[in-house]
Design a binder for these strands. Structure first.
Length: 534
RNA sequence: GCGCCUCUAGCUCAACGGUAGAGCAGCGGGCUUUUAACCCGUUGGUUCAGGGUUCGAAACCCUGGGGGCGCACCA
């Protein structure tokens, strides 16, 4: 009873909807808001173009056709058609029937024959549309299709006399009418602002853009496979933090209304993941967005994607090894080789990455031994001599880092582990077992950019408290990027964290490296921009 | 935040301080094997905005806006 009622109702409703496009038609604005100046001969080309295309939509509806149908059954992606029939000789017709779908990118109309190039996410393919095959009425309709329209096509596979693989079209269904014209078919979009704001248009017309995002996807997917194979568990930890810790960076602030309290967007994944190591999860990782309230540049977007992993019973040497494996494998999976070109140099990522102690690198450049144990005034004098900037509150360790950035960073081309960061700038890293002034820490530098950061994790709760207190003192002295004492994290450490190695990698930067692009905006789909004025 | 560069038709680009143009897209016509199809004809402009200099400004100057690059910022 219920069932029959329901199905009867559905049939009735369906029938009403099929025969009643007028309902939809009436409720939709079918003329542009600036229609009043339709009478005037002037007006922008875009307005006229959109009006013409919308007019076509209205016309189709009046005929009872739906310019925006609900679905289409596709038998093959375009790349599948090509791989199955790519070897056909010129001038071959087959009886292989296919149903394909895509966006019309090009149209060549020779009178009674139309060649159209459609594009899906896998490939492009040519449609061979003959008036004699589809019939006069259908041919007229196909002529009315615009570049940018989505179509579904039924036909058979053939090659033209020139050898172009094509679908000899029996029937074309309009799947979605494009009201707005596509950018230039040859040049695409070049204005970077427009490319980033209208990423949808960029992706339609610029293959390079599609390629970069495909590489980004492959990098992340490769990381997940490598980590799964090594026994890591993927987790998700909070984005909203009461106090943003785990890195030196200014956070974004927000507010929770029901709790009536300020919250901060995370600047790192570190502290929550290490709580999970305390909890006994042993090998965990997270790939997630972090937010830093800093300047925007070719290397920095305010929100970016970090991969952090933590491995119990491991130290920094294990973590350096897994770093090499992750990035080398990602190169194989994305570009098919471990040999990539960086600044004109051929670099084989499969070779062991050089290790460079920060103090050694600086010492060599300044011609005298520099170490965080040096007298502060001596280190300041060296910094002054080499134009490295520092604040009065900085200790020798932090000034050495400044010297490194000033003198050494730019020279690093191939991936390099820069090791032995001073304790002062590494509040969560464990002191080097052979040198109490530096930590068992490394940063991965490549093409002068920092790709990641790892260390033997500090797990002594008493020492961690002392380091946090130093951070808080620096923050209270006016350094907004320094941290605070995270009592809950200290409580976790008091339960005992096993010896642990940790790693953080900037996924956007790895994607940049492997995609061979020099701006982070080429691998972030919707980079942060000022709002557009409409 | 500072410096330099940039903004012209839907898109890609021209235009000495002197009538705002081309190609693509669109529209009309022709063409049954094209390849950014081609051929003929044609519509389309708040030259980012606002001021100023000038007989005359897309251009020169000022202010503002968007964007890019560099610096600063950024373990």
């Amino acid at each position: 009873m219920l069932t029959s009622l329901r199905s009867a109702g559905r049939t009735e409703g369906g029938a009403r909807r099929d025969g009643g496009y007028g309902l939809v038609f009436v409720s939709e604005p079918t003329t542009p808001p600036d229609d009043p100046d339709a009478a005037t001969p002037s007006g922008s080309g875009l307005t006229a173009e959109k009006r013409r295309r919308q007019g076509r939509v209205d016309e189709l509806r009046e005929r009872g056709a739906n310019p925006y149908p609900y679905r289409f059954d596709r038998s093959h992606a375009l790349a599948e058609v090509r791989s199955a029939h790519g070897g056909l000789e010129a001038g071959t017709e087959t009886d292989a029937e296919v149903s394909v779908a895509g966006r019309i990118m090009l149209k060549r109309d020779t009178g009674k024959l139309i060649f159209a190039t459609i594009q899906d996410r896998t490939d492009r393919i040519q449609l061979f549309i003959s008036k004699a095959v589809v019939g006069d009425d259908a041919f007229d309709d196909i002529k009315q299709l615009d570049i940018g329209d989505w179509v579904g096509v039924h036909g058979t596979v053939m090659t033209t006399r020139a050898g172009e693989l094509s679908v000899k079209t029996d029937r074309v269904e309009l799947l979605s009418k494009a009201i707005r014209p596509l950018p230039d078919k040859w040049h695409g979009l070049t204005d970077t602002d427009t490319r980033f704001r209208q990423r949808y248009a960029d992706l339609i017309v610029n293959e390079e853009a599609r390629r970069a995002f495909h590489i980004r996807h492959e990098v992340i997917s490769s990381f997940r496979r490598t980590l799964a194979a090594e026994g890591f568990i993927e987790v998700e930890t909070p984005v909203l933090h009461v106090e943003a810790g785990g890195a030196h960076a200014r956070p974004f602030g927000t507010h929770h209304h029901a709790l009536g309290m300020p919250l901060y967007l995370r600047i790192a994944l570190e502290l929550h993941l290490k709580r999970l190591i305390v909890g006994g999860m042993e090998r965990v990782y997270e790939i997630g967005r972090v937010f830093r309230n800093e300047g925007i540049s070719t290397r920095h977007n305010p929100e970016f994607t970090m991969m952090e992993l933590y491995q119990a019973f491991a130290d920094w040497t294990d973590v350096m090894a897994i770093t090499e494996r992750l990035i080398t494998q990602a190169a194989r999976d994305t570009v098919g080789t471990t040999v990539i070109e960086i600044r004109g140099q051929q670099v084989d990522l499969a070779e062991p990455w050089p290790r460079l102690a920060m103090c050694d690198a600086v010492s060599e450049r300044v011609g005298t031994t520099v170490h965080p144990s040096n007298d502060l005034d001596d280190v300041r004098a060296i910094a002054d001599r080499h134009g490295a900037k520092y604040e009065p509150s900085w200790g020798a360790g932090r000034i050495i880092e400044s010297l490194f950035e000033q003198l050494c960073e730019d020279d690093i081309v191939r991936p390099t582990f820069v090791t032995g960061h001073p304790v002062e700038i590494s509040p969560l890293a464990r002191v080097d077992r052979d040198d109490p002034f530096v930590t068992e820490r490394f940063e991965i530098f490549c093409d002068s950019r920092e790709l990641g950061n790892g260390y033997s994790e500090l797990n002594d709760p008493v020492e961690q408290r002392a380091r946090f207190e130093d951070e808080q003192a620096a923050k209270e002295a006016g350094d907004a990027e320094r941290g605070t004492v995270d009592e809950d994290y200290l409580r976790a450490l008091e339960y005992g964290m096993p010896p642990t190695g940790g790693l953080g990698i900037g996924m956007d930067r790895v994607a940049m490296l492997l995609a061979g692009v020099d701006s982070i905006r080429e691998v972030v789909l919707f980079p942060t921009l000022r709002p557009e004025q409409f």
